[in-house]
Simulated assay, not measured.
Amino acid sequence: MKLEENRAPDPKEEPVAGDRQEIMEIAMRAGHILLENGAEISRVEETIDRICRHYGIQSANSFVLSNGIFSTMGNQREEFFARVQHIPVSGAHLNRVAAVNQLSREIEEGKHTIADLERCLDDIENMPGKRNIVQIMASAVGSGAFCLFFGGDLLDSAAAFLSGMLLYVYILYGGYRLSRLVEHILGGALVTFLCMVFYHLGLGHNVSSMIIGSVIPMIPGVAFTNAIRDLTDGDYIAGSVRMMDTALVVLGIALGVGMMFTAYYRITGGNLL
């Protein structure tokens, strides 16, 4: 029986061939949004499986990596289907992840038709991110707060506040055009240079605390947490890829900081630490 557009489908009904392919495409699209925006592997696989089974597809199987989804369907009763999607490693947008999770719950409650799902996923993909000024100020406040946490005083925190603010201006308006490794090398060098300048201007006393606080906005905390969760869930390939990605980010930051300290030492012969 063909699914009607004006009612939510009964999961006990058998979808016809065209419906099965449309359901699989929608399930993969939901998984794509989750994976692209920072969800862990188990969440992506579970969401795809829930959507397919709710709409009556019993033979669906998905294999998810940190940058790709492989989905298949087919047995004696259901026609064969196979799709592969490549999802580049990118940043986290947890509001979109939360929206897809909520949509998945509503699907299990029978609140959506197939046409509804297309519109809902369009809305989720078009959800606006945080405004640039909000991201810049969040980076500044976070940098200043972490500087205090790591032993800096109020002047150190003020310097880290300014460094974190200028760092995110660089990330939003210049760094995105570069490769991830180069972006973080230059970012680490930038905050180190700024903290050195502020130190010599008398704004701050502890350069190490200022630098540590300033680089915090670049630390990939969500990616690192997801890598640990993937490894503990047995997704060793995905977890290793994410762990390597976070390690490259940290390496880039360390290289930038080290290069700036080396240049300072060779130019002035002094030591700030």
Rank of each mutant, 00 (worst) to 15 (best):
H32W: 06
L154Q: 11
E45A: 11
R29V: 02
G18L: 13
V191H: 11
R43W: 06
L117D: 07
F161I: 00
S208T: 15
G258P: 01
L167W: 03
G110H: 05
A99H: 04
P15T: 00
R77P: 02
V100N: 06
G142E: 05
L273S: 13
S104R: 01
H93G: 04
G144Q: 10
Y264L: 14
A39H: 01
F149N: 09
R180M: 07
L203A: 00
E40F: 07
L121C: 05
D233W: 00
A140G: 15
I57P: 04
F150R: 00
F70D: 02
G110I: 07
M137N: 12
A92F: 07
V249G: 08
R131K: 15
N132V: 09
Y55T: 00
R229Q: 14
L190P: 11
P128W: 09
N206I: 13
Q21C: 04
A39P: 09
M260K: 08
G188N: 00
V182R: 01
I57F: 03
V44N: 04
P220T: 06
T246Y: 06
L121Y: 03
I212R: 04
H112E: 10
E4A: 01
N6I: 05
V84Q: 01
A227Q: 07
E14N: 01
R242V: 02
L103K: 04
I48L: 12
A115Q: 13
L94T: 10
N61P: 01
E125T: 02
T268M: 12
G38N: 09
V207E: 06
C120G: 00
A99E: 05
L35R: 12
A254N: 09
T268L: 04
S62T: 15
C195Y: 08
M218E: 12
P15Q: 07
D233P: 05
D230N: 14
L203K: 03
A115S: 12
L273R: 14
I136F: 01
S66A: 15
L117N: 02
Y236E: 03
E79M: 03
V182H: 05
T225F: 07
M24L: 15
T246G: 15
V16H: 00
S208L: 12
S71H: 05
G164W: 05
A60I: 07
L35E: 11
R50A: 09
M210D: 04
I51K: 00
H184D: 13
P15F: 04
E14Y: 05
M243V: 05
P88Q: 06
E46W: 10
V182A: 14
P88Y: 09
K12R: 14
V250T: 14
I219F: 13
R131C: 01
S42K: 11
D233V: 10
L172G: 09
R242Q: 08
Y236H: 06
G204S: 03
T232Y: 11
